[in-house]
Design a protein around this nucleic acid. Sequence first.
DNA 1: AATCATTTCGAAACCGGTTTCGGTATTGTT
DNA 2: AACAATACCGAAACCGGTTTCGAAATGATT
Lengths: 364, 364
Amino acid sequence: MNDVKAGPEEEWVKSGEVRISDLAAELGLTKGTVSRALNGYEDISKKTRKRVMEAATKRGYVPTTQARRLAMGLTETIGLVLPPMPSQPVNTFISEFIHSVSAALHLHGYDLLVHSANSEESEVEPYRRLVQSRKVDGFIIFRTNEKDPRVNYLLNEGFPFVTHGRTARMAEHDWFDIDGEKAFRDATSHLIKLGHQRIGFVGGGKEFFSAQLRLKGFRTMLEESCLEKVPSLEQPGDLTGQGGEIAAQNLLKQTRPPTAILCANDATALGVMKAARELGFNIPEELSVIGYDGIALGAYIDPPLTTLTFSIEESGKEMVNLLMRRLKSPDLPVISKLASAILKLRGSEGPPSSIQNKNMENCL
Amino acid sequence: MNDVKAGPEEEWVKSGEVRISDLAAELGLTKGTVSRALNGYEDISKKTRKRVMEAATKRGYVPTTQARRLAMGLTETIGLVLPPMPSQPVNTFISEFIHSVSAALHLHGYDLLVHSANSEESEVEPYRRLVQSRKVDGFIIFRTNEKDPRVNYLLNEGFPFVTHGRTARMAEHDWFDIDGEKAFRDATSHLIKLGHQRIGFVGGGKEFFSAQLRLKGFRTMLEESCLEKVPSLEQPGDLTGQGGEIAAQNLLKQTRPPTAILCANDATALGVMKAARELGFNIPEELSVIGYDGIALGAYIDPPLTTLTFSIEESGKEMVNLLMRRLKSPDLPVISKLASAILKLRGSEGPPSSIQNKNMENCL
DNA sequence: AATCATTTCGAAACCGGTTTCGGTATTGTT
DNA sequence: AACAATACCGAAACCGGTTTCGAAATGATT
């Protein structure tokens, strides 16, 4: 019954004011004992444990996070570094991803620290800072490059992390990814079955591993279907709408333009559609377009954009699971998980206007 | 030169391994002295300060954040709680906002803790938890309601925060907002100048203060222009595409449909455009549509969506400034900042097909 | 009843910093 | 040269928890 603080009785109602030493003094115990009682140690009698618990809830005791973490030598925090924002952000992926990662982390008692990279400094600098100041226990990395400096740094440092996307060193770290190769095989196959024979592809930057894999899926399916690979039908892009416009112009101004265009993402597809409209191509009658990402906005445009979609929520959850496993037992072998995208038909694709009905069932 | 740790010389290369006590021992000083030297106290001689600094950089010493924060009694962290995700997020606001807030906080040495609210529990629960566990020093709140439980809780608790958006208690807390009323006056005025006389409005939920203010701006300008207020032309919405579709159907199936529709946000506008297409209205010839938010994708649809836009980056910066000011001097009077949106003409509006050329210059 | 095993808790070290206080050593003054 | 003032640094408390260790109290065993 020592005075917690000079003041009226209601003082204790205010949250965040009672410390473990207050509880201990009030109960006539030491703070060590109170701590163990609260944390379920076996060497506390049922009776005193009950006393402690009741006092704790009554007084609204919540341990001070900073102190707990310092004592336990962990931060219970995961870092997520946002890449520099594109001038025209087109995708809601990031916010959905943050949302799901944060929710999943919360189930494990972890917090999410979001840091933004400014474009002037090196890509790994934010990671280095967070590691050195010991602000996080691990990282969630997304939008990996094939040769990823962030991955190199963290591997070298022996610091836990999981990537969304594969890298050249994927055998050395946990990762989660969408099977973009299969996705684009599926989409290509779908177009071929519709009767398309000249299919264009607008890719992403060479640095994005995922974009490369999507291209690979496209090529693979062309080959399996005995369609010749036409280099001029493969256009580079940059995963933006503008890039899509330019690429579409390159494709559609050719003497024999493609009857369908596959795009490495939805932003690109929107640019392609815009350019196609301006060049007088009707979609989907004269040109089929398929994107990748499943952005919700795609359902509202005319025609609605057919796209490859996947669950961002699942991505977040799975990545958190991988990371938690790694934090608990750092020496387990690396594992990975590949999820698949599904083709969401919405209307921007259809059979080509003039179906040249070659027999394509057997290749030779 | 006592052994820092048994091991080879390279041990110190690994980051995050050297503590202040290591430095102190190496220099023959106490850790208190080292700390003061590093933090610019005046009672340290130039010579030893230099010695300490050099040793610190040489050994790559970075103070452990948790310990610093515990000792100093602050978290240097700001909390941002994400509202439950809509099933069809169409807006990139959140990710841009997080990005700018995070970057601005970083300039002040603060971190951003992102927490996601799950929809089952009370809206204030995440805030309560973060306050009680002392994980943050303040909050950034966005998407305020007129009567906002979060604001009530934090005001009652005396905990620092800034809102993006006004509330019923805006006189009691710092806030930043976009002048949605003026924005919608401008947009309405623009439509009236184009010759529109029957203008529809699709609002947001009644709980969103901002949506109410936008409606108010719409009504004000109608009144100033001597256009009669037609209740059936004001439709409620929910800030989603679906809500926009339904509202548009209600508007366009009327015997005298509006020639233009103002939407409380871009998602709504997309739904309106979709419904209009399906009902056979050409945009902008037969129906003008204007949205609010300035989403980048609006530029890629057909026709490109005219919208009211504002700088999300500025919003983030300003809010951080307000919050930092509050943290530094808690007793300063509350201040607020109102920024304005600008009308970005992209093509989804134009003069009505049949201009009834009433003289509207003078009201009476 | 003496001995041993268990249960239960207190004492104290520790996590890695910051900050206050006081004591030398040095400088300045006359 | 004696004394006061100042510069500089060490010692120790502190932030608020966790965890180890050992001792006292209790219970079980023979």
